[in-house]
Design a protein around this nucleic acid. Structure first.
Lengths: 192, 192, 192, 192
DNA sequence: CATGAATGAGGATTCATTCAT
DNA sequence: GATGAATGAATCCTCATTCAT
């Protein structure tokens, strides 16, 4: 008997449906989404939701974890294929594009940084680590200033990616990301 | 009955007490503060709160309006006494310092930008205007890039000022503000 | 301003109505009575119930406290007017009669003794004290055995007064009370 | 299909395991034990529980029936070997000792008497019968008063055996049982 | 005007029971 | 027969808002 038996096919389907429905809701901006509604739009009853997730918070946490997992795979690949400076630039833009296609990056970043909630501690830490790695590689190469840390940059990105409501926000978001990137290179000589 | 009769002295006192209590609560970070609690800490009953403010949201809105009023006076003065670039730099730092001394700038900016709520529409617009004026002056002088707008910059500042919970807050905030400022100058020649 | 301002007339009325409705429900035997139902039968909404009583348990506790208050006044009076043995006999019968007229003594005693819940700790202690006083007086007079304590006797009474469901239970209750009383005297010489 | 086909060996094993687990739970004092938990501690799933017992109540009922079965065998034996008065005394003490060793007599008696639930009707009746037989034998012999019935005595015993939580449990229980017994003999001459 | 009591629509969570696998 | 996932009614409690005093 395995430590944690694989779920029955229909159970797994429901679990996925729940995560997907929650993702739709939370990342779509409705951070107060009701469990009842999430369950309903997943096509199951609340009881089923609670069978899969101990509490409402646990469900949210899982949604965010998955989202962050996806994003945190990128930096390693980028660093393998580009000079650090370029890898950083691309990752920053990746976050922005990701947010643009409604993949919910905006809410993820925003939630991660705008609250002190321990619920997001892990997600916060992992995103900051991803950025730290890029910053450190750039600093080591002398092309990015070395006095900016991952957590700090993460905060700024939260502001950028939180720009949901605006008309033409992708343009704006790209722009200010470039601004930040310029700032990061600007002081390279001075602050490294 | 005049559009807005002057309030009796005690009524005005209550109104001020309520705004002050709400400010304490909201800007102190408890954005879910209960009306009952706010009323109590203002030394009045809920009924009085509702006599002065239509709804809970109206009270919040008023708190933010006042806060933003204070801040929006600064750009004009700064522009009168400094070259545009320096005025912009000082205003950005002013926001950060303001947030630093617990005057609630962080929550103001964060709330203004992180939500789509029409409640903050006006506050958002006025802060963006203040920044626009500074950016335009800098662009006119050729020392600041001209392709960044007030609303866009406001978003980025929201990210910075939302850094409440972290250790070493002020240092990080100053740093990233400098980063942004560098970015704003960096492209001056190119983008103006 | 008094330490605890007297309640407004209508508020007190509601409070009484709630206690009365709860009494009806709990002492009537429905120990799982729903707050919603209690509120409704008191003619108020749940919110009102919760304004007067912090939790469901707090309400129950208050009901029991009042009930026990009433009963615990009796022993002192009885001892003042009768020899201890007779006072004891009368108090035992008083409990039984009290239960008989639907005044809820049965559930009170039962709840007090059949659960370990700390909710009833105080009520339990006071009832036991009342019995202790009577037993001790009787023991001192040499007419009641001295090796039975209040808490012990309280348990036995719980069994007797719990006889709700039976046909003709008052007769039975009186009978077994007499039995106990006989037992208490029987060993007087031996155990005092 | 015979009225009650003999169960397959493994089915019977499950049934026994369920009864045993339920016994552990209910008689151990957790009268609110969840079916899921009972099933788990019996090493089966809920579905299996429901295959053997129509409802949660049916399971409880069965547990109590078995417990009472065991106890109701005693009076006949005791009467065969002792004078009625002594048989009664021994049976009363047997109940107490049984409760003392955690065999759950306390909960059985308490549940049987403290509720009106028809679930326990049969158990109640059989226990009362057992006591009636002893009382009648004693009355016939003239050593026990004849005006106390089984149901009545059963109630009193419920109170005694409900004394679970107290320090010094067994001592108190023995004592009050003796008290009752004394009361039963006390009036023998008078009431027979 | 001020008070604070009353309202009542939710909202998260639990658990006996059913039924597809 | 056994499993355990799914159901969903039921329950306690919260809190913005209204309104009698």
């Amino acid at each position: 008997m395995p430590a944690s038996r694989p779920l029955r096919a229909d159970a797994r389907r429901n679990r996925e449906a729940l995560l997907s429905a929650a993702r739709q809701a939370f990342l779509g901006g409705d951070t107060d989404a009701h469990v009842e509604d999430i369950a309903r739009s997943a096509g199951v009853a609340v009881g089923t939701l609670y069978r899969h997730f101990e509490t409402r918070e646990a469900l949210i946490e899982e949604v965010y974890r998955k989202e962050v997992d996806d994003l945190c795979a990128a930096p390693a690949e980028l660093l393998a294929q580009h000079p650090p400076e370029e890898a950083l630039r691309r990752f920053l833009l990746l976050l922005v594009e990701h947010a643009a296609v409604g993949k919910g990056m905006s809410v993820v970043l925003e939630s991660i940084m705008a609250t002190d909630s321990p619920v997001f501690d892990e997600a916060r830490a992992r995103m900051a680590d991803a950025l730290s790695r890029l910053l450190e590689a750039g600093a080591a190469a002398g092309t990015v200033r070395g006095d900016v840390t991952g957590p700090t940059l993460l905060r700024a990105l939260g502001g950028i990616c939180g720009m949901r409501a605006t008309e033409g926000w992708l343009t704006e978001a790209r722009q200010i990301t470039a601004l930040l990137f310029d700032g990061l290179r600007h002081g390279a000589a001075r602050a490294a």
